Computed example of a mutant assay.
Amino acid sequence: MVNWFFRRRRPPARMLRLRPRGDMGDARRVDFEELAPDVETFLGQAAYLQLGYFETLTRLIRATPELEEKEALSLAAGAALVKHRAIVDIIRDRGDEPTEIMRPFQDQLDAFRRATVGARPRETMLSVHITAGMLDDFYLALASSYGETGRRVAKVLSVGSDRQQIVELLHGTIESDEEMRSLLSLWARRLVGDTLLIARAALRPQRLGSDDEKKVEPVFTALMAAHARRMDGLGLAA
């Protein structure tokens, strides 16, 4: 089982707290096929993750009154749904039933999404931007293990995710609100840990030996480098 982020006067002080928890470069060329999960697991997880991001974003749309924000969220949600459907088509082309391929991972990945939904819309926007970015990178790295199927999935995941408007909304908040900047920075650090745990758990061995660690180290190093660039783009330190 796979187990599974312009004030003229200073406003009144707020106490913002996190709610309690209940591009890849060389990494794409790292061959760690022996550690990769079977192709059904790879496809099921990749497809359900995109569906989960679509669900999270559409819930945010309903909860957001501002039209500008609804538009930004709708673009990202649409991109996630397109990726989900494209991976579902790949599953069907292999002669498999998509719901059956995804079902074993539904509970674990839903739990991950619940753990990374923030108490505020900006936290959840950041969650999608960071976790989807890191996991898309990770599944791109895994894709080289699956021949033509992997190449098709890599092509799907390489398509833009239309999250730039979300980035701009987050950046505006970070630049104008020091308290939210601190909160989002702390939230991002939590998200990284949770996301790396999912990536580790997706690999075939339950425990990685020293030789296995050496094989995957370049991938996780690249994941963190790409994450640092995303954080820089937001105006936050990784």
Score class of each variant (00 low, 15 high):
Thr56Tyr: 14
Ala36Thr: 03
Ala238Thr: 02
Glu213Asn: 10
Thr131Ala: 15
Gln206Ala: 06
Leu135Gln: 12
Gly78His: 09
Val156His: 08
Gln164Trp: 08
Ala154His: 07
Val159Leu: 03
Phe54Arg: 04
Asp38Ile: 11
Gly209Gln: 13
Val88Trp: 05
Ser182Arg: 03
Pro121Gln: 15
Leu208Asn: 03
Ala237Gln: 04
Glu33Leu: 12
Met102Lys: 02
Thr195Asn: 08
Ser144Asp: 00
Pro11Thr: 07
Ile90Phe: 02
Asp38Leu: 12
Met102Ile: 05
Leu49Tyr: 03
Glu71Ala: 10
Leu49Asp: 03
Thr56Ala: 15
Phe105Asn: 05
Asp110Ile: 12
Gly233Ile: 14
Ser74Ile: 08
Met224Val: 14
Ala154Thr: 05
Arg190Thr: 11
Val192Ala: 09
Val219Phe: 04
Leu43Val: 13
Ile61Asn: 00
Asp96Ser: 05
Pro37Trp: 02
Leu81Phe: 09
Lys215Phe: 11
Val88Gln: 07
Glu34Met: 12
Glu71Phe: 14
Lys215Gly: 08
Pro121Cys: 15
Thr99Gly: 06
Leu67Cys: 08
Gly160Ile: 10
Ala119Asn: 08
Tyr53Ala: 09
Leu197Lys: 11
Val219Ala: 01
Leu140Tyr: 03
Asp110Thr: 14
Arg181Val: 13
Met102Tyr: 02
Leu191Pro: 13
Ile130Asn: 07
Arg9Trp: 11
Ala76Phe: 12
Arg204Cys: 14
Asp212Ser: 12
Arg151Thr: 00
Ser176Met: 04
Pro11Arg: 13
Thr64Ser: 08
Ser158Ile: 00
Ala199Tyr: 02
Ile91Gly: 02
Thr131Arg: 15
Arg151Ser: 03
Thr221Lys: 06
Gly193Ile: 06
Phe220Val: 06
Leu142Ala: 13
Arg19Ala: 15
Arg59Glu: 14
Glu178Ala: 09
Lys70Met: 00
Arg163Thr: 09
Glu148Thr: 14
Arg200Val: 01
Gln165Val: 04
Gln164Met: 09
Leu203Val: 08
Thr41Trp: 00
Ala63Ile: 08
Thr221Ala: 11
Ile130Gly: 05
Leu57Met: 13
Glu71Thr: 12
Glu71Ile: 10
Leu196Ala: 04
Ala202Trp: 01
